[in-house]
Design a protein around this nucleic acid. Structure first.
Lengths: 196, 196
DNA sequence: ATAATGACAAATATTGGGTTTTGTCATTCA
DNA sequence: TGAATGACAAAACCCAATATTTGTCATTAT
């Protein structure tokens, strides 16, 4: 550790502590102890335990986005990009639920409490879908009066596959087929000319 | 009360007790007391408290279906019936969450525990969607290789609007617009000729 | 003979007071 | 002078003793 305690150091250690003890058992004193400082020092950088936890979870969620952004920015059919973007989102959620259960549990708790950090994460995700849909419309691939609304609908229609409240469903071996079937609806809904 | 205690009487009283005390506080002794019998008598008709609770919840859920069955059986455009069927399902879920909170909480708990009674309810609902979709295909209104799979997809795509885990979202004034947007995707996905 | 009872053990839940944790801040440290 | 400390009060949280509840069954009642 360096001379002065930084927010960055606290966040890294807090993430380790949260991963080790889980959201129910991790305390601010644990974090301070792991850093070799008094817990008062943590409060110089974060106003509350909740703020610290939100920031850790926010960074954890942010680490999902670069891979998704890359897919959204590819030069390929919008339909293809959207499908792979959704699959990447779903796959990373499923992987994290399995491989990083304590931070996933933290995320689930924050989602349940409707914390701002989770809402912000959703806004970023819907923003990325909006970008793909907008591009798809520009290419003449999709037809929709409002890409932002269509993007939200795509996010809502796939809720079961990425919302942490449904993580228990994700072990079902049929879940992939269920997603395929929903994807078939979505694709046609975005592409279709019917009703216009 | 009549001479002999019947399962029917127990179920009616158990529902009242559950509604009054909620799933966390209601006990078998409460039900027996309300019936003026010993709790041992309840166990003559139900093997466990869980079985009694499942049966009460199952009947409560069954009372949803007649109105939906009626919509499914109407002689009207399948698309129109499906939309009204979904709206009726969603509306009754929302209404019950608001007006019958203790039984809704019971239902939520059983859904969380993935009890058989809830799975059976879902199967009935998906079966009704399947009937509408099958009829829509027969009328040449819909195009789908497998109505049962499409029906499940419709159910999954509207998860956010009827799954009790998301009841907290239902107070959002924008929820109706979100459903409209998902409906637009679904309708086109069922009707569309693209990709075939 | 069937239904109901109530005493009972095991499992589960409640309670309350001792302990830990959170969050503050006057003081110390570099 | 800004960073860190540690003593402190209030809030939250354990945990073990206590009480309730579940589920069984031999007995009683009809």
């Amino acid at each position: 550790m360096s001379e002065v305690l930084t927010a960055e150091q606290i966040l890294e250690t807090a993430e380790e502590v949260l991963r080790r003890y889980g959201p129910a058992k991790a305390t601010v004193v644990d974090v301070a102890r792991a850093l070799g400082v008094s817990h008062g020092s943590v409060y110089r950088h974060f106003p509350s335990k909740a703020a610290l936890r939100d920031t850790v979870a926010g960074r954890w969620l942010e680490r999902l986005t670069p891979a998704l952004t890359a897919i959204a920015a590819e030069d390929a059919l919008a339909a293809d990009r959207l499908r792979r973007w959704l699959e990447a989102l779903i796959h990373s959620k499923h992987t994290r639920a399995k491989d990083d259960p304590e931070l996933f549990a933290t995320y689930l708790a924050l989602a349940y409490e409707a914390r701002e950090v989770v809402k912000a994460h959703v806004e970023i995700l819907v923003g990325q879908i909006t970008a793909i849909v907008t591009d798809g419309v520009a290419r003449g691939e999709f037809t929709t009066p409002d890409p932002a609304i269509a993007a939200r609908a795509v996010f809502d229609a796939t809720f079961r596959f990425h919302n942490p409240a449904h993580a228990a469903d994700w072990t079902d071996p049929e879940i992939g087929k269920a997603f395929d079937a929903v994807w078939a609806l979505i694709l046609c809904g975005l592409s279709g000319t019917i009703g216009r």
